[in-house]
Write a protein that binds this DNA or RNA. Structure first.
Lengths: 198, 198
DNA sequence: CGTCGCATTGATATCGCTCAAATCCGGTGG
DNA sequence: CCACCGGATTTGAGCGATATCAATGCGACG
């Protein structure tokens, strides 16, 4: 049922957290509003979104069960993007004040929190690396390599291929075409809702 | 709150830091080697680089005077990229162990360090947002908007335009052409080694 | 069933990449 | 002081990969 690797909600934060639910399509916070809360996603899917000049969505981050989000905002006065529940979502919400207090009061928690931010930073840098690749097939290959937990080379795709296309910074048509081509030429293999790099 | 515009080396770290210099072209650390140190760049320019399959450089991060680098690596066993001094560079080097000890011993420093990581995270997310834009002119506009300190709309370009092109994820030829076109159509204005968005 | 969104494939246009060449500019050595 | 050199800058021509527009099938869900 739950991912065994699901990162736990830090016990030290539990007394300060309140549980909330949002139905699909609900806005959790908006860009420009004051950063009063940090969130942990218990279940569902939340996207952090900015809008381009033409109104198109830019997905800065997609949080899934076990992820914190808005965690980098605590020392910024205002949120810099919208948070939108894609599916019905359950979150644990902690006030930024409680969090900073806990950081100063509990050195072990501070260390954990720094570790968490470091992981996020490395993950986003990996995405920068991916978006720096020019061809669609290279981005797909990079996604399969960096998403693969070591050995097998099998990567399960969460959500739709359309979402994956957006994450890779290409259109869904190009993703379909390139995947089909890579499969034809024997570079990858489809398996259920995932892929294997050969 | 404590968001100093001028990045300073935290006084609490000074007793643990050693000063080193690297000449242009020198490798400071390599991907895969153990993460023993965290660096602060006093002067010069350092790039964090990974290499694509064709051997092309992917610049994950470009550190300038006042930036920390490898700061996200302290809870990872190995560096995940190369660090290369582009110009002669002077750094302050702190061992990962001293840093974690200080984090646990000094709550005020822990808070500052978390603030620093948050800034880095927001900066990298901004770069992701930029790389998600499809057209060169949109990326340039985004760069000028997000790089501009508030009011004036004037952004000074550090380094060469070639470097900027790499940062924007386009070739330098395209950058030159697009800049010229945007200037012709009155969208931007060149001023010395910078640009103004109109 | 009808509808809606994802998946897939086709046709075409376009933007940016590649290769190429000319100029500029700062530094270096004679 | 000047000739030279390397790298940045700039512009040109052509091509190819990807975006865009379009149409169809398919499965889920009410």
């Amino acid at each position: 049922m739950n991912n065994p690797k699901l990162p736990a909600f830090p016990p030290a934060l539990r007394p300060h957290a309140s549980r909330l639910t949002y139905s699909a399509g609900k806005m959790i916070f908006r860009a420009g509003s004051a950063t009063r809360w940090v969130y942990y996603l218990v279940s569902g899917c939340v996207r952090l979104i900015r809008r381009g000049r033409a109104g198109e969505e830019i997905v800065l981050h997609q949080a899934r069960a076990g992820d914190f989000f808005a965690e980098a905002s605590i020392d910024s006065a205002r949120y810099h993007c919208d948070a939108l529940a894609m599916e019905a979502a359950t979150v644990l919400r902690v006030s930024a004040l409680d969090l900073t207090n806990l950081i100063e009061a509990d050195p072990e928690f501070a260390r954990q929190w720094i570790s968490l931010l470091g992981q996020q930073l490395r993950a986003v840098r990996t995405r920068v690396e991916r978006l720096s690749l020019k061809s669609a097939s290279e981005r797909i290959r990079h996604f399969l390599l960096s998403g693969a937990p070591g050995a097998a080379g099998y990567v399960k795709v969460n959500g739709t291929l359309k979402d994956l296309a957006r994450d890779l910074g290409i259109t869904h048509e190009t993703l379909y075409r390139t995947l089909a081509g890579m499969e034809r030429s024997g570079q990858i293999e489809r398996q259920g809702d995932g892929f294997r790099l050969l």
